[in-house]
Amino acid sequence: MIAALIFVISFLTLLQFFVSYSRSLIAESQGHELSEQAREICGLTAKTVAGEQFRRLLALIALCPEPGGDGFEIRAVALYFRLLGLVRILFSWAIPSAVPWIEAERGGCAYAAAVALDRRIAYNRMMMTQQASLQL
């Protein structure tokens, strides 16, 4: 009985801590303005990024060599994105008012992915410029 109670409480606190942790990662990237080049490559027109873009952005991120250190952030945000997808499936019929919030959160995940992609593109451009200057 006590073990079951501990399990339920721990599971709920785990969810809360993980959601807050993921949101802290996303909030960090929201201060970053996406470059025009990144917008062009991602095919983005508006200032915000729709949640549906997330998977495409992940695929683009996978194509860019990692500058180091953002893999953990991307994985954590991707896990949060999947969790939101699950919540949307489970709650869309029970609490329809929660759907816009879930979509906004998924959009936040997509924006964080776009920022990560932007940083990788900038890093790769810098590497290419350095390589070109060395060849000269």
């Binding site: 399990f7 599971f11 801590f17 993980f18």
Partner: peptide, 21 residues
């Protein structure tokens, strides 16, 4: 500080839950 505390929370909760299970 926020991220350090939250990561500790995730760790403790996951372990307490897994031990209970």
């Amino acid at each position: 500080l926020m991220q350090l505390v939250l990561s500790m929370g995730v760790y403790f909760s996951a372990f307490a839950g897994s031990y209970a299970l």
